[in-house]
């Protein structure tokens, strides 16, 4: 095949990746918008190790080459991720586009990446030298810059098996389909024995990297709803400082206002 390699196993893919100058091609929906004329693709769609969705004792493991359609149709996938995936583009794109591609693209507008930030997911990166597991927040280095080494593949996404059912998610696009996020917000809040045991929020499409600030969210953890109300003002003020939208075609003021509104609504919907 000229300008392309087909890999049918992870081992084979990693071998090619180590030797050749290739661009990993998963769903192709970002790469093909403006493809490099001389790009040589390494096709990943047939690597079964990258297509599984399974649970083990610790994690839900989603193969990086799973398409959004496969994710939406899988019963193990938590609702928050399904809801976000179902709002990506349109069916024909979701049939191709993969979760791994959405992450490795490095964009803060990635709708599935937002959910993975909010859930503190981890990424399993594998090369022929070995493998490492990286929290998603450490994977993103800047606008369109990631920690992925040129001989590495993102093979799996690992989501902690915590309760994700009490979630808040809102994507704000320009229309109801085929929309790129202008602002997106995802949050999870769990209460046990009257106390907040975890609060995880993430803001997408506002900055170069999805904003996830566990240090701020920690303000609410360990508190009752009533106690949380006491620090609410301080908590919101901290995010007001933390969210600095970058300039874009949609004004920073608008995106900031939406972020703060959604954050407040998230708190209110949890009685805070």
């Amino acid at each position: 095949m000229v300008n392309g390699y087909q890999a049918t196993s992870l081992k084979e893919a990693l071998k090619i990746l180590a030797k050749e100058s290739v661009t990993p091609y998963s769903g192709g929906t970002d790469l093909m918008i403006d493809p490099e004329e001389h790009a040589t693709f390494l096709f990943l769609a047939r690597i079964s190790e990258m297509k599984n969705i399974i649970e083990d004792t610790e994690y839900l493991r989603i193969g990086a080459a799973c398409t959004f359609t496969e994710i939406i149709e899988n019963e193990l996938v938590p609702e928050i991720l399904k809801e976000a995936a179902a709002q990506i583009a349109a069916p024909a794109i979701r049939n191709l586009a993969t979760i791994g591609g959405n992450i490795c693209n490095g964009s803060a507008k990635g709708d599935s990446a937002l959910i993975l930030f909010a859930t503190d997911a981890k990424l399993r990166l594998v090369s022929s030298r070995g493998e490492r597991v990286l929290p998603i927040a450490e994977f993103y280095l800047g606008r369109k810059k990631t920690a992925l080494k040129s001989d590495e593949l993102l093979v799996e996404i690992l989501i902690d098996r915590i309760n994700l059912s009490n979630y808040y998610y809102k994507k704000v696009g320009a229309r109801d389909a085929l929309a790129i996020s202008r602002v997106s917000f995802a949050a999870i809040l769990n209460v046990a024995d009257g106390k907040i045991v975890n609060c995880m929020t993430a803001f997408g499409a506002v900055s170069d990297i999805i904003i996830r600030r566990p240090d701020i969210d920690a303000m609410l953890v360990g508190k009752t709803t009533k106690e949380a109300k006491v620090v609410k003002k301080e908590y919101i003020a901290a995010y007001d400082q933390a969210i600095i939208p970058i300039k874009g075609r949609i004004s920073a003021e608008y995106r900031k206002a939406v972020c703060m509104n959604l954050l407040r609504d998230f708190l209110e919907s949890n009685g805070i």
């Binding site: 349109a90 320009a174 229309r175 109801d176 389909a177 085929l178 929309a179």
Partner: peptide, 16 residues
């Protein structure tokens, strides 16, 4: 003009 593509110049889809 920067709104020069279907992702930047948004027209109604079937669900709007």
């Amino acid at each position: 003009i920067r709104n020069n593509s279907f992702s930047d110049y948004i027209i109604p889809t079937a669900v709007d």
